[in-house]
Design a protein around this nucleic acid. Structure first.
Lengths: 339, 339
DNA sequence: CTTGGCACTCTAAGATAAAGAGTGCTAATT
DNA sequence: AATTAGCACTCTTTATCTTAGAGTGCCAAG
């Protein structure tokens, strides 16, 4: 079954995909001869396209219509792109506004990415577990309300409000923070979490409640926290696409967008892989349900991949341009982190 | 022109509005006689409806169709509701989960409101200018990066990261915070802002950059800040409504939703007024453009109205239920603030 | 193997017709 | 004088039919 495509077949397939990405309408053999110069007649192209149909790369909405690429065709096209195009030369090299606030940076990146891609962009802030802890400070807000601020290795603050059953004096809090800073500085939250559960026997009793909540030892708020760390922009761009003219499809996609947890999971899966990744239609349950594709790349903080940026678009996405754009944006964020 | 409607005319008008709110289809004289028992024949109702049409309360899509309420009719109906119904008895009295975090509370309220109303909900966090300042604390994050945390009168923290041209020692920062806490505790940010510009001559030079950024004296980030303090939930509910089947209308509304600044302005306008407010269609530019209505109520913090909750729905909204719901939710938030 | 030619297929768009809901008016009734 | 029944008329909606057009599939010739 798995026959190698001849060079010429590949060219025709590529041409069909490219053409369909532009027009979103079934591609006829005639229009291929007009747009591309293969030195072949429409009839020949027609024969080749019939073969490609049999191989599962193209399909016909009905007998007397042009051909439409299948997901297999997009996969073939994208794999070719990812092989060939390691240079990413053709996109405009934008810059992000300088800012001290990480969230602002990511928000900006997401907005820019949505505008330049013309699709919806999605940016996930660093996974909290991977963050490197530097030091912590406690501030008493009200009687039993304590604000914990921890600062990360790269100088970003996170704050957590904790309600205590019994009040703690500022002196006690300072003592506790000194201990924590001394013992856990420069370690990841994940490590700290594990250590805290085994070490800290003497302090534990008195501060148990506080520590559990601050380091979220029972991982209660993790999902909700991460949910707030997701930037989704340009979703309305999707509505301008011809494949999303039916209200039902728009509805389904936007309901999915509201479920941020599912999106976080989707991005999370791609964190560990190298370079830009492309998920096409039914290669993923979320995408399949909404007939769309995802181009995604992770950004680094230090030497670890901690977050991801991506673009959600139609299966008929301009993969070439978007892959470059996503890859570039991820690198931009990695670079901004360094300063 | 402004003739008083007879009691009977009012009843027919009300019946037409109520019926149309349910069905979203033009209301015929016959269907009125079926649904309501006025002891009148269809022909009589027909005559009355013709009068109401002449008075601008009803209109006909075409000669041989039923009647549809105009905005004037909704206004009449809503004014009647607001007069009569100060009791709000008929909605279910839900509760919000206890939480220490104000944003979580507002987010929860927004989600609940959208689910219970069946429309889109919108919740604005307290306007930052109205917040009562309690004390401030500075933490050095990196060389020239300072984190300022100010705590409000009711114990909620806000933090701002400031990048300085020159570093300040922790000692200096502590001295400055002591001065600020001493001088400005229990005053609103708006007041503090005004005072800072005139007072603080001696400290000003050295700390000018820091103070300007922390208290946002040039109001640069205010809009962006407020933008992040807006919770919009259940927007996809709107897509289920028959008036939003056309993709163009959905698109327009969702593009408007992305413009959070406009929404903030819309809510802001209503902050000072007493009780639940209703804006119907063309009574507001934003709503007119998207053919929808807004029910809104402000919540208090102390004795000042600081934020607002609302519901955005079709002009054919179930005002009765929604007004009660919005009013109740606003009161719930006000109450939660007190603890 | 490639190509021109041509009959055939299927959709999309326009045209026509019939059904149905509701009005507006008139004349009869209370 | 207000109310009601009756009925012709209007306008939309839905279904059916027709036609134009794009594109294929296949055959026979190059």
């Amino acid at each position: 079954m798995e026959v190698e495509l001849s060079h010429r077949d590949q060219d025709i397939l590529k041409a069909t995909v490219i053409s369909y990405i532009k027009t979103a309408a079934p591609i006829g053999s005639r229009s291929i001869t007009k747009q591309f110069d293969f030195g072949l007649s429409a009839a020949t192209i027609r024969n080749i396209m019939a073969d490609l149909k049999d191989l599962g790369f193209l399909l016909q909405p009905h007998t007397s219509a042009g051909r439409v690429p299948t997901e297999k065709a997009y996969r073939f096209y994208v794999d070719l792109l990812l092989e060939e195009n390691r240079d990413l030369s053709e996109i405009e090299h934008y810059q992000l506004a300088k800012t001290e606030d990480l969230n602002t940076l990511l928000h900006d990146a997401s907005k820019t990415l949505s505008i330049l891609s013309g699709y919806a962009s999605i940016v996930m802030a660093p996974r909290i577990e991977t963050i490197i802890f530097k030091h912590i400070k406690f501030i008493s807000l009200k009687k039993n309300l304590i604000l914990a601020i921890f600062v990360t290795g790269d100088g970003h603050p996170y704050n957590i409000t904790v309600e205590m059953d019994e009040p703690l004096s500022q002196k006690e809090l300072d003592r506790l923070s000194a201990i924590i800073n001394d013992r856990y500085s420069d370690r990841s939250l994940d490590e700290i979490r594990k250590s805290l559960l085994t070490e800290m026997h003497e302090e534990k009793k008195r501060y148990e409640q506080l520590l559990i909540k601050v380091f979220d030892l029972n991982k209660k708020n993790l999902n909700e926290f991460q949910e707030n760390q997701l930037f989704l922009e340009g979703t309305t761009n999707i509505m301008d696409l011809p494949e999303f003219t039916e209200t039902e499809k728009i509805k389904s996609l936007f309901k999915a967008f509201e479920e941020k947890v599912a999106l976080v999971k989707l991005l999370d899966r791609c964190l560990s892989s190298e370079g830009p990744q492309v998920l096409i239609g039914s290669e993923n349950a979320f995408l399949e349900a909404n007939e769309c594709s995802l181009v995604i790349s992770s950004y680094r903080l230090g030497e670890k991949d901690v977050g991801a940026v991506g673009v959600i678009g139609p299966i008929r996405m301009e993969y070439h341009r978007v892959i470059s754009l996503v890859d570039y944006t991820a690198k931009l964020i990695t670079k901004a982190h360094l300063c």
